[in-house]
């Protein structure tokens, strides 16, 4: 079939056709251009940080402490002070403290819901459940952030008696609502791509439905499922409005899930509005953006490679 269409189109070398094809080609590579420009501009501005800030300062800084009367190595983000401190450790810490629980929550629910949709639910349930989940994906993150701030934070504090009303866990709950639909969609797709013959063979050997799911279907789809989790983790790291509104924005180095934290994304959003363009602080914020972008980029590439591998395997 494609041979026919190729044969038929080979003949028309009209100049207008050529022009249209070139115009379409330019639109086609626009995505590549934009991704490259994002890379270029983030790193171009971010690298200017090192004009005045040493790479070690991004970890911590020796600061004279008048109380102890000696220099202390301070790992903190304190951009607006006499001696600005630009340690990204608390920010990275905060990002992971939100993204990790969020991914765990949304993965458990996402994989469970994916299995339900693909293996157990009837076609009718699936037809109604999937559009509803798409609606969930369509809720703007600022709305979720607002509800976390106004309603859920108080509820969580009453439940766990936490010191901070706004903390990483509240943020993680909100972020998991955003990553959940992404993970469900990809898990379901991965499970449904498993050939029916595999399930039939398992049933014919006497396996029960859940033995088939656990021992045959899920292992066969494990690469697709892990790609979904990776992608969800990338989204969780990049989520901005929810963490900006619900995590308390205190740049602390901590591993306590119920502590206030400040993520890389929230830090950029909160501080970029007030900085002087071309100042040291401005460049550092771009550098934080560049680091964040690199992290999510690597996660995206990884999940894509895994998905492509799975597709190729299933085709064979």
């Amino acid at each position: 079939m494609t041979d026919i269409t190729q044969e038929l189109t080979r003949k028309n070398h009209h100049p207008a056709e050529w022009l249209i094809e070139k115009a379409l080609f330019i639109s086609g590579i626009a995505s590549i251009v934009f991704i490259s420009l994002i890379f270029l501009f983030l790193f171009k501005e971010g690298m200017l940080t090192f004009k005045s800030v040493s790479p070690l300062d991004l970890i911590g800084k020796w600061v004279y402490d008048p109380y102890d009367e000696k220099n202390i190595f301070k790992v903190m983000w304190q951009s607006v002070s006499e001696v600005p401190k630009y340690s990204i450790v608390p920010l990275v810490c905060g990002s992971f403290l939100v993204a990790f629980p969020a991914t765990v929550i949304s993965s458990v629910f996402g994989i469970g819901c994916g299995i339900y949709l693909s293996e157990i639910a009837s076609a009718r349930v699936r037809e109604t459940l999937k559009p509803t989940l798409e609606l969930l994906a369509g809720i703007p993150s600022v709305v979720i952030g607002f509800l976390m701030l106004a309603v859920v934070a108080t509820f969580v504090q009453d439940l766990f008696h936490t010191k901070f009303r706004l903390n990483a866990f509240v943020g993680a709950l909100g972020v998991s609502l955003v990553t959940f639909p992404i993970i469900v969609t990809l898990v379901e797709e991965a499970l449904r791509a498993i050939p029916k013959e595999l399930r039939d063979a398992s049933y014919a050997l006497g396996a029960t439905k859940w033995q088939t799911i656990w021992k045959t279907v899920v292992p066969a789809a494990v690469s697709g499922i892990s790609a979904a989790v990776l992608l969800g983790f990338g989204r969780a790291l990049g989520e901005t409005m929810i963490v900006l509104m619900a995590t308390g924005n205190a740049a602390l180095v901590t591993l306590d899930m119920f502590s206030s934290v400040r993520t890389m994304t929230a830090n950029i959003a909160a501080e970029m509005g007030e900085v002087v363009q071309g100042s040291e602080h401005y460049y550092v914020l771009f550098l934080v953006g560049a680091i964040l972008f690199t992290m999510t980029f690597v996660l995206n590439i990884c999940s894509e490679v895994v998905i492509n591998k799975m597709r190729r395997k299933l085709r064979m």
Partner: peptide
Amino acid sequence: AVNNLAGVPSIVFGLFGLGF
């Protein structure tokens, strides 16, 4: 590129919009 563009954090778009 399209898949990656879909995964770029929204705040990074904000930075890019300002810088570019």
